[in-house]
Simulated scan of single mutants.
Amino acid sequence: MQSITDFFGSIDSENLDSWFSDLIRFILWSVFILFLGWFARKMIQRTTTDQILLYRSRKITRYLSYFLIFLLAIFTFVGEIKYFTIAIGIMSAGVALALQEVILSFAGWIAILTSNIYKTGDRIEINQIKGDVIDIGMTRTTLMEIGVWVSSDNYSGRIVQVSNAFVFKGTVHNYSTDFPFVWDEINLPVQYDSDLVLVDKIIRQTAQENLMDYTEIAKEEWKHLVKNYLIENANVEPTLTLKLTDNWIEFNFRYVVDYKKRRITKDQLYKEIYKQFKINEPKVKLASATFSMVDMPDLNVNLKNY
């Protein structure tokens, strides 16, 4: 308690001219630190074209500059070194009470950077918002939003900022870290009188022509996933199964695809399969929910004039 009293007493006894000169020194040194940070970013920009390295270097130099200015403020205005820990304690208590959410967001930022929850360029879903990560700040993550009023995996055009605190409050879905592929599927209803062997051949041949690159890369990526996590070795080959329904035979085609090319790949598969079905008609026929009148009894209509 006596130390705290001495600390505030020393502040009260400071000469106004001394405080003014300290303020001038602080401003000049702050400008110099900011200049060094700007100069470092420019030098890094001239020596490399790696966008990820440039992005991270800008972040690191900016935060380092702010941290140095913060230390400079402490040593300039607190005065004696013996009061440094007291000043830190008082400020920490006030900040902890007033900025709880900000502190949690800052802790989330540290967790994101150190545990690889996600990084810039990843496609994630956090706090029920889906999008591509375009920036990770100290308190907020910025996403280019996907979905909402547009179908599939298209951008909505909105830029959304989400608090980093949500990495502790909920689930984070990452579509690209460790395994940059997702499983997708298409369902094809086929009439019962179709040549099922031919249908099977058409679908598998289409998969061979359009998906083999994904399959080979996915196999290698899955091997790395098995090494890092306690997970079984999954089958990443395209699979084809069928189901008998009341109206048609339903073929279910399941495959792995690049998480950013899910829609365009499905479009290619549908077009190619439909093209082959049309070529092989009437052996292969797609089914639809329509009604056919197979028989109708004779009708005897007697019209009378009233």
Score class of each variant (00 low, 15 high):
29 W>D: 03
303 L>Q: 10
107 A>F: 13
204 R>M: 15
147 G>Q: 06
301 V>N: 04
287 A>C: 09
158 R>M: 09
82 K>C: 13
164 N>G: 09
64 L>S: 04
132 D>Y: 02
24 I>N: 03
147 G>L: 11
298 D>C: 03
207 A>H: 03
150 V>D: 12
304 K>F: 09
265 T>K: 01
94 G>D: 03
266 K>T: 05
24 I>H: 03
168 F>C: 05
181 F>L: 02
171 T>H: 04
256 V>R: 01
212 M>S: 11
68 L>F: 09
233 N>T: 11
288 S>D: 08
306 Y>E: 14
33 I>T: 07
44 I>Y: 11
277 F>D: 02
89 G>H: 03
2 Q>A: 10
132 D>N: 02
240 L>S: 03
35 F>N: 03
251 F>A: 04
180 P>K: 00
123 R>M: 12
226 V>L: 07
72 L>N: 15
232 E>S: 14
180 P>C: 03
222 W>F: 12
13 S>P: 02
156 S>T: 14
67 F>H: 09
58 R>V: 08
203 I>T: 08
247 N>H: 00
269 L>T: 03
186 I>Y: 02
68 L>H: 04
93 A>D: 08
16 L>M: 01
207 A>S: 15
238 P>W: 00
234 A>C: 11
111 A>H: 06
282 P>T: 00
130 K>A: 11
20 F>C: 14
27 I>G: 04
271 K>F: 13
270 Y>W: 03
206 T>I: 14
147 G>D: 09
131 G>P: 12
86 I>Q: 04
78 V>S: 07
148 V>M: 09
263 R>K: 06
47 T>P: 11
